[in-house]
Amino acid sequence: MAGTPVRELDVGAITEAVKTMCITANYDLPQDVYDALVEARRTEESPVGKEVLGQLVENADIAAADRVPICQDTGFAVIFAEVGQDVHLVGGCFEDAVNDGVRRGYGDGYLRKSGMVDAVVETVSRAGSNPCPPVIIGVGIGGTIDMVTVLAKKALLRDIGRTHPDPRIAGMEAELLAKINALGIGPQGLGGSTTALAVFIEEMPCHIASMPMAVNVQCHAQRHKTVEL
């Protein structure tokens, strides 16, 4: 039976497309928004309001003409991608291609990038004996509020003994584990030096003014399975 031909797509095209979208999304205010601002400037009753709307229109003109970001806050790139089932991606991994596109867009486009920090011990300390220690801690850092909870859960899929590939994150994991075990909570919260068996962190870049973090406190009966077909 003749099926639909499979289309091969090099992931390099994805990287290039994502890069371009990151830059143009920051430089060019969409026409519908621009038109709405122009109309609002005409109808606004407050002189201050009119002035502000005028500035926003002028700002969009400058950004488009000078090829600079509309706002210094260059946002957080959230990519929704649909991959049809008849596409075969070649030349690399899809996720890496998208991330690389964002990285290049924010670099080549002179867009502002954001950073990250840690803070988990307090959460485990407050949980105390409730989660049936010894626990396994999944930490999500960065991304957006919806993603960070998924990151924290995903972190728990890792096998104990396997550290994060990034030595900086692996170092944070070791530091957190030492601090949590120094809390003295112990097995079942009855006191002791084994409060957590492992700390796993998964991270994503995030916006400079927000630092979403999710801590998933998992009991020792950590049922995790992965299957490859």
Binding site: V68, P69, L111, R112, A209
Partner: peptide, 18 residues
Amino acid sequence: MGPSPAKPGNVIGSAGPT
């Protein structure tokens, strides 16, 4: 304010209030 990076030849990047 914390600006976006300045393009070569520009005094500063985009520079609105936070």
